[in-house]
Lab assay of single mutants.
Amino acid sequence: MQIFVKTLTGKTITSEVEPSDTIENVKAKIQDKEGIPPDQQRLIFAGKQLEDGRTLSDYNIQKESTLHLVLR
């Protein structure tokens, strides 16, 4: 499924993921596309910071959901 990751600069990254993918996994995909190390990434969805060990389905993230990427 496709999800969108919006950066603070307003850029939107499209990523191909599975509901069973972990947040860590998603951060790795963002690193592949943007070159941002996962340890600098914080992903936010519905006002919550997403934890690395959890999966997209844990957070009820569905296709075409938009996550927000904040850098630390």
Results as ranks from 00 to 15, higher is better:
residue 67 L to K: 00
residue 50 L to I: 03
residue 7 T to G: 06
residue 68 H to M: 13
residue 57 S to D: 08
residue 38 P to I: 15
residue 71 L to A: 08
residue 64 E to D: 14
residue 20 S to F: 11
residue 49 Q to C: 13
residue 57 S to L: 11
residue 55 T to S: 08
residue 50 L to E: 01
residue 33 K to Y: 09
residue 36 I to Y: 13
residue 13 I to F: 13
residue 50 L to P: 00
residue 61 I to E: 01
residue 32 D to K: 13
residue 25 N to P: 02
residue 58 D to I: 03
residue 29 K to S: 07
residue 36 I to L: 06
residue 36 I to H: 08
residue 65 S to M: 10
residue 10 G to E: 03
residue 26 V to W: 01
residue 67 L to G: 00
residue 66 T to Y: 07
residue 27 K to M: 12
residue 52 D to V: 05
residue 25 N to A: 13
residue 57 S to K: 12
residue 46 A to W: 10
residue 39 D to E: 13
residue 44 I to F: 15
residue 50 L to Q: 00
residue 22 T to I: 04
residue 54 R to Q: 07
residue 37 P to E: 07
residue 50 L to T: 02
residue 45 F to R: 02
residue 37 P to M: 07
residue 72 R to M: 13
residue 72 R to T: 12
residue 12 T to E: 05
residue 40 Q to R: 12
residue 49 Q to H: 12
residue 45 F to S: 02
residue 50 L to K: 00
residue 12 T to Q: 06
residue 53 G to P: 06
residue 45 F to N: 02
residue 5 V to Y: 03
residue 3 I to D: 01
residue 65 S to N: 09
residue 10 G to R: 04
residue 68 H to E: 10
residue 10 G to S: 03
residue 52 D to T: 05
residue 67 L to I: 13
residue 27 K to H: 02
residue 58 D to C: 04
residue 29 K to A: 07
residue 28 A to I: 13
residue 39 D to Y: 12
residue 31 Q to N: 10
residue 53 G to M: 09
residue 48 K to L: 12
residue 26 V to K: 00
residue 54 R to D: 04
residue 68 H to T: 13
residue 23 I to Q: 01
residue 3 I to W: 01
residue 60 N to H: 09
residue 55 T to G: 02
residue 35 G to I: 02
residue 63 K to F: 07
residue 31 Q to Y: 15
residue 40 Q to C: 12
residue 24 E to H: 11
residue 55 T to D: 02
residue 5 V to P: 00
residue 33 K to T: 12
residue 39 D to I: 10
residue 33 K to A: 13
residue 63 K to N: 15
residue 43 L to N: 00
residue 53 G to F: 12
residue 18 E to L: 14
residue 44 I to H: 09
residue 72 R to S: 11
residue 59 Y to D: 01
residue 48 K to V: 14
residue 39 D to S: 13
residue 69 L to Y: 02
residue 20 S to E: 10
residue 49 Q to T: 14
residue 33 K to G: 06
residue 64 E to I: 02
residue 68 H to G: 04
residue 11 K to I: 10
residue 30 I to V: 06
residue 57 S to N: 09
residue 25 N to F: 11
residue 41 Q to M: 15
residue 40 Q to G: 05
residue 70 V to I: 13
residue 53 G to H: 14
residue 44 I to V: 10
residue 51 E to W: 07
residue 71 L to K: 06
residue 4 F to Y: 13
residue 3 I to A: 00
residue 35 G to S: 05
residue 14 T to C: 09
residue 38 P to F: 14
residue 24 E to D: 07
residue 46 A to Q: 15
residue 63 K to R: 12
residue 42 R to D: 10
residue 60 N to L: 06
residue 19 P to E: 08
residue 16 E to M: 13
residue 26 V to A: 02
residue 13 I to G: 01
residue 28 A to D: 06
residue 38 P to N: 08
residue 28 A to F: 12
residue 71 L to E: 07
residue 60 N to K: 09
residue 59 Y to I: 02
residue 36 I to F: 11
residue 8 L to S: 14
residue 56 L to W: 03
residue 5 V to L: 07
residue 41 Q to W: 11
residue 1 M to E: 03
residue 27 K to V: 04
residue 3 I to T: 00
residue 14 T to Q: 08
residue 6 K to A: 07
residue 56 L to P: 00
residue 26 V to Y: 01
residue 29 K to N: 06
residue 70 V to T: 08
residue 1 M to A: 03
residue 8 L to K: 10
residue 64 E to Q: 10
residue 58 D to H: 12
residue 59 Y to S: 02
residue 66 T to D: 03
residue 53 G to A: 10
residue 53 G to W: 14
residue 30 I to G: 01
residue 23 I to W: 02
residue 34 E to K: 05
residue 69 L to P: 00
residue 40 Q to D: 09
residue 62 Q to N: 09
residue 55 T to N: 04
residue 7 T to P: 04
residue 8 L to F: 14
residue 63 K to C: 07
residue 54 R to L: 11
residue 52 D to I: 04
residue 42 R to W: 12
residue 50 L to S: 01
residue 41 Q to V: 12
residue 25 N to H: 11
residue 44 I to C: 13
residue 69 L to T: 02
residue 42 R to P: 01
residue 69 L to F: 03
residue 30 I to R: 00
residue 5 V to F: 09
residue 62 Q to M: 11
residue 28 A to H: 12
residue 65 S to D: 14
residue 6 K to H: 12
residue 47 G to L: 03
residue 61 I to K: 02
residue 32 D to W: 10
residue 62 Q to W: 07
residue 13 I to K: 02
residue 60 N to T: 04
residue 45 F to Q: 01
residue 71 L to C: 07
residue 40 Q to M: 12
residue 6 K to D: 03
residue 23 I to A: 02
residue 54 R to N: 09
residue 37 P to K: 07
residue 2 Q to W: 13
residue 23 I to R: 00
residue 70 V to N: 04
residue 56 L to S: 00
residue 66 T to Q: 06
residue 11 K to Y: 13
residue 13 I to M: 07
residue 26 V to H: 00
residue 20 S to Y: 11
residue 29 K to R: 09
residue 13 I to S: 03
residue 68 H to W: 15
residue 61 I to L: 03
residue 1 M to F: 15
residue 19 P to K: 07
residue 19 P to V: 08
residue 5 V to I: 15
residue 39 D to Q: 11
residue 27 K to F: 07
residue 31 Q to R: 14
residue 30 I to N: 01
residue 69 L to C: 02
residue 4 F to D: 02
residue 26 V to C: 02
residue 18 E to R: 14
residue 6 K to L: 12
residue 71 L to P: 08
residue 62 Q to C: 05
residue 2 Q to M: 14
residue 8 L to T: 13
residue 20 S to R: 08
residue 17 V to K: 01
residue 30 I to Y: 02
residue 23 I to T: 04
residue 51 E to I: 09
residue 9 T to F: 13
residue 22 T to G: 03
residue 44 I to R: 05
residue 51 E to Q: 10
residue 24 E to Q: 12
residue 62 Q to A: 09
residue 38 P to D: 04
residue 14 T to S: 10
residue 61 I to V: 09
residue 33 K to N: 06
residue 63 K to D: 14
residue 59 Y to A: 02
residue 21 D to H: 05
residue 69 L to K: 00
residue 24 E to N: 08
residue 55 T to F: 06
residue 12 T to N: 05
residue 21 D to G: 03
residue 54 R to T: 05
residue 55 T to A: 06
residue 33 K to D: 06
residue 67 L to Y: 00
residue 38 P to R: 14
residue 28 A to E: 09
residue 57 S to Y: 10
residue 56 L to D: 00
residue 32 D to Q: 14
residue 5 V to K: 00
residue 16 E to I: 14
residue 37 P to W: 06
residue 24 E to W: 15
residue 41 Q to F: 15
residue 17 V to I: 05
residue 64 E to H: 14
residue 40 Q to Y: 09
residue 64 E to N: 15
residue 11 K to T: 08
residue 34 E to L: 15
residue 35 G to P: 03
residue 42 R to T: 15
residue 65 S to H: 06
residue 20 S to K: 08
residue 21 D to K: 02
residue 13 I to R: 01
residue 14 T to D: 04
